[in-house]
């Protein structure tokens, strides 16, 4: 027996799909800015495992010599990113949707089980709720990361007027470093998110667009429970 079940409220779908291109533009313009002082890497001492970013990357995406352009886009779309994010958080708070996302007791344990399940180590089925523990942690984290991106961005952008904020993040240089790694975090989230959505399938993806999901209930569920009860 199949039926339609409401999954994602219209407001959240809007926030999500507005955020997607805006965040992409923020990351792209951020890279145009970062190019002008591309000092971060993964490594230790004289060993560099990966440099952000290799010359080939800049060449491929035509990143070089576009600092001014990057700043113009960044300081324009920051408004959309901030307003959309703020409205999203307010909506979560006032609609009660936050209950679906904010981790609670046992979330960490569940998230661990989900990871084991995803890695095919654990067989037991995932909980049938809107978001499992791993999703809760991931979706809460990106909200916190978004807020931190805004705050570290402000700490860099208005480092004198908001010097208290800048010192809170450990100074101008560290605020920039944090801002950069938060962006890398968003990229990592994006990759995993897209991968997981692809794995979850069409019905799930479609629900982020229409709001509804087709749910199949096993018809034999009733007798089996009765049996189990005996």
């Amino acid at each position: 027996m199949k039926h339609l079940e409401k999954k994602h409220p219209l407001a959240i779908r809007w926030f999500h799909w507005v955020n997607f291109p805006v965040l992409m533009l923020m990351i792209w313009s951020g890279i145009l800015i970062y190019w002008a002082n591309d000092v971060y890497r993964v490594g230790w001492g004289n060993h560099t495992l990966f440099k952000f970013f290799p010359p080939a990357f800049y060449q491929k995406f035509n990143i070089g010599q576009r600092l001014g352009e990057g700043m113009a886009w960044h300081f324009t779309f920051m408004w959309l990113f901030a307003i959309n994010g703020l409205l999203y958080v307010l909506y979560l708070a006032f609609s009660g949707e936050w209950r679906q996302i904010v981790p609670g007791r046992g979330t960490l344990r569940e998230a661990f089980q989900v990871v084991l399940h995803e890695l095919r180590i654990r067989r037991a089925p995932l909980p049938r709720r809107k978001f499992n523990g791993a999703q809760r942690i991931a979706y809460s984290s990106v909200i916190v990361m978004g807020a931190l991106s805004l705050l570290t961005g402000l700490a860099i952008h208005k480092s004198i007027q908001l010097s208290a904020l800048t010192s809170f993040f450990g100074g101008y240089e560290i605020a920039r470093w944090l801002h950069f790694w938060l962006t890398i975090g968003f990229c990592a989230f994006f990759l995993v998110h897209v991968l997981q959505v692809a794995r979850a399938g069409w019905n799930n993806f479609r629900s982020m667009i229409t709001g509804w999901e087709i749910v199949s209930e096993p018809e034999s569920a009733q007798p089996e429970t009765t049996k189990a009860a005996k």
Binding site: K2, L4, E5, K6, L10, S95, T210
Partner: peptide, 29 residues
Amino acid sequence: RSEGGYFSGEEKGEKAKSELSGDDAEAQM
């Protein structure tokens, strides 16, 4: 309905559910 009414709190507490079954659910979707 795919739109409308979501701000009115229809989802608070319980899940909104359509009672359509089988093929109808799919057609509607």
